[in-house]
Design a protein around this nucleic acid. Structure first.
Lengths: 168, 168
DNA sequence: GTCTATATTGTGATAGAC
DNA sequence: GTCTATCACAATATAGAC
């Protein structure tokens, strides 16, 4: 997805734009502008906007997988890192999770690699891991969407949720 | 939000459009077209597109609250109904949950009414209820986004998750 | 309440020259 | 690899006549 140096530069510009101004700012024209070139020139490097997005998604998963692997199998710490990742670059997190996974265009094994620490942390049951993942994803998206009441104690909700999924 | 008959008709058309063709189809022009009028005419009834969306959001929450109240405090059944609601009108569910709640423009108490059955079902602890809600929301959004692997047993993940949040 | 007409801004994408 | 030029749309919104 990022074979050439120019492709890497384009992805870096797109990611910076996404982080700084959010999803709505991620347009072909704005990405080109950040690189001081014109929009049509981008099409020599990527097939279209979606290809750039897929590149960002792959990048995001690789970094997330790395961060989770560094944690190991401590469920509470996995939760902390998962939440921190999403809050650090909310727009990237949404891009990664809002639509169907472009599995065919992602590096082999990346999805499994990202999931592995959580599966281990809940005791090996994939269904339990999926439930715990849904909990974490729900907490993060509701927080990002500003859907919790202002007074809600999110740290406590995380604690309650993660301890509910601790291995038995 | 739907005081006049004409406003109610507009909301009904918008909702049908949303259900039939999804979020992207919900444009002022398409709503007007469905009513056989021109787009500018809508602005005599609603301040703008966002006001129409808020009307749909209020409608959705009222119906969801009703459905959950009918269930009572059976956590498994609440989960089933929550999921069914989201899957029946995915675009409406996303509209209801993707952004900040327009609390000021929603009927008083509607948010609390919607949450009440779940709070009771988990034993009264609001933090526990928020964690369980995050789990349900995460399950639903990941399913709608097509993010679970094709072979994943979602019924089992729901079962595991809900039993993890059952009152103790 | 509805209309016509218009303003303004934006989108992703392509052809073909250099 | 980059450019100019352009396409073909679509969006929300407003003014003013009827």
């Amino acid at each position: 997805m990022a074979d050439t140096p120019r492709q890497r530069e384009i992805l870096a510009a797109a990611r910076a734009l996404l982080a700084a101004e959010g999803e709505a700012a991620l347009t072909v024209a704005r990405i080109a502008q950040a690189l001081s070139i014109k929009a049509p020139s981008l099409y020599k490097h990527f097939a279209g906007k979606r290809a750039i997005e897929v590149g960002l998604i792959a990048q995001g998963f690789a970094e997330q997988a790395e961060a989770l692997e560094r944690v190991g199998t401590d469920l509470v710490e996995l939760g902390r890192v998962y939440r921190a990742f999403a809050l650090r670059e909310p727009a990237l997190y949404r891009l990664m999770t809002d639509g169907p996974l472009p599995r065919a265009e992602l590096p082999d094994g990346l999805e499994a690699r990202t999931a592995a620490p959580l599966v281990a942390a809940v005791g090996g049951d994939p269904d339990r891991a999926r439930a715990a993942w849904a909990f974490a994803h729900g907490m993060v998206t509701l927080e990002l969407a500003g859907r919790f009441p202002p007074h809600a104690d999110l740290d406590e909700a995380w604690r309650v949720g993660l301890s509910a999924f601790a291995p038995r």
